[in-house]
Design a binder for these strands. Structure first.
Lengths: 317, 317
DNA sequence: TTTGATTATGACAATTCCTGTCACTATTAT
DNA sequence: ATAATAGTGACAGGAATTGTCATAATCAAA
């Protein structure tokens, strides 16, 4: 293999295995150790952050910085990526430790000048606004880690002005409108709840034995939750605008069906305990939804509407 | 210069000048044209999308795909970038032509397997939700282009259900809560206005002479709009839960006031044209809100509730 | 039509550079 | 101590790279 190709491949190999010895590479590439040493020095000069230790169990490391091989991005893609990263900056809390600005700088640095110029022109003309909240969510990393590795957390949670202790097992986190939320199984309620992350005042790993929720994640959680519960069947017709409103609600994804023309319907099972929640939500959709089933839900809606009417009727204008 | 370094440098040179001839490069690198030809063929084999034309005015092109030189990103940075791009996908319209999913795929493709694995684990556990509210905004590119290059656009704009023709000179675009907006100078009003991009039904370059707004951009426009709009006063008492629900709606931030005990109230001016929107929203809050003012809003609520009631009453269970 | 600019390809000798080997040294875990 | 590891320098042989020349093909413009 010619050297130029070997170097490129070595770049990737070295990034795959982050720890390796000279001999390993020598065998893999079919060249002598001396050559590998020379190559590694060249990679080093090219900016690959290598670090070596002598002695048994020694060898080469790639420092935490990894080299991305040359990627072919179109101009449009590069610009899009730039603004994607820039949009991230607006979030006051993120589940990653990084300051995304460092990634942004590097990316910008490496752009060819003409793309840089294009970005400069656009920078002050395009923005992705995420409302800045005072509320920061310091426990995102822990929550995410618990969701990935199936751990139970003991948290102190503030709801309705009161602090309470809970044991929860998160299934993920998401941000919406500048706030972070974590759907999780709550051991106190013995059911799934959504927690607002800025209301979580402390979070620690708990010794409790976790459930197996590996198959439950953000996209399918609504399906799984109610399997063994007492449920009623929901069927509701949606106008185009109703569909759009529902699309913004993550937890409805599994119930939402969309037709070609933009309209659609909601169909699925609702836990009896959630009926009131659904009732309120469906009322919020106003005339964009026509609930056809089940009777329980319809009754709930009518009852709630009646209460509202009487509440507003009693009010002087 | 050894070949391996020359190739890497050539990769970048070739991306800088997107059009070049063999002789140019030969001079620049101090090697013969024959060598350059051989090198270019190698670059081609390495994936750089080169295209050549013979004859006078011929030469080499790089196709729109550009090669990004190897960049050193830390693991955290790489993960952050991945999710930044993924978050972009939620936007129904973007001012770039790209499908951001192609960028996402490439990026993912080139990640070392261990980072890929980490991303896989996180993919279904983290989400950046952008509400998909309304119809898409097809004219973003034109608006952005006009903002950058100081052009005047003739648009047809829908406001309060009526279409009107306007000449505007955009100073930028931004997205907030799933909708795109463009602050612009409106020649009809002779003042700055913010336009909702999905309400812009057509946009064409106009021959009108543009103003010099180069120094006005998203960050420094203080010149605000809407002070002179026709508004009504809203005052509504909120329960603790009502407060929490409102906190999730960032567009309410300026109206929302919270008491120590967690309850609060909404107070502020609402444009007449927005009353219906507020009515629907307030109904969605159910009993967590007590609207006390203004009469127009209360009437709106009662009317809408009455419609809902009759809609559901007409339904057989 | 001719001319000149351009890419494209092949052959070959000159030469550069790359590579392996060997002989060392230094460090460190066991 | 011993073995495993990195690191350096020198050198000869071999492999890859390079320049030159010859030759084609294409195309724009004079």
């Amino acid at each position: 293999m010619p050297k130029s190709k070997r170097l490129l491949e070595m770049m990737m190999t070295v990034n795959r295995k982050r720890k390796f010895t000279v001999k390993e590479l020598a065998d893999e590439f079919g060249v002598s150790g001396r050559t590998i040493l020379r190559d590694l020095q060249e990679l080093s000069e090219l900016g690959v952050p290598l670090y070596s230790e002598v002695g048994p169990h020694g060898g080469y490391h790639v420092l935490k910085e990894r080299i991305l091989p040359p990627i072919a991005f179109s101009e449009e893609e590069a610009v899009a990526i730039f603004f994607a990263i820039q949009a991230l900056r607006h979030h006051s809390s993120l589940p990653f430790k990084t300051e995304s600005s460092s990634a942004l700088n590097k990316f910008y640095q490496f752009m060819p000048p003409d793309i840089r110029e294009r970005i400069d022109q656009m920078k002050r003309r395009v923005d992705f606004v995420t409302p800045k909240r005072q509320a920061s969510s310091p426990h995102l990393s822990i929550l995410l880690d618990a969701a990935i590795h199936q751990k139970v957390l003991g948290i102190t949670y503030e709801s309705r002005g009161q602090q309470s202790k809970r044991d929860i097992q998160p299934i993920g986190i998401y941000t919406k409108n500048g706030l972070w939320y974590s759907p999780a199984y709550c051991y106190q309620y013995q059911d799934f709840r959504v927690f607002r992350c800025d209301r979580i005042h402390s979070a620690e790993q708990s010794a409790a034995k976790p459930l197996d929720l590996r198959d439950i994640h953000l996209e399918n959680r609504q399906i799984k939750t109610g399997v063994d519960q007492d449920t009623v069947h929901l069927f509701a017709e949606l106008t185009t605008e109703g569909v759009q409103a529902c699309e913004a609600e993550h937890w409805l994804a599994s119930m939402l069906h969309v037709r070609q023309d933009g309209s659609g319907w909601l169909e699925g099972n609702v836990a009896r305990s959630d009926i009131l929640y659904f009732v309120k939500f469906l009322i919020g959709l106003g005339k964009e939804v026509t609930v056809q089933h089940s009777p329980e839900i319809l009754d709930g809606i009518k009852a709630y509407l009646a209460e509202l009417i009487s509440m507003y009727a009693g009010m002087r204008r």
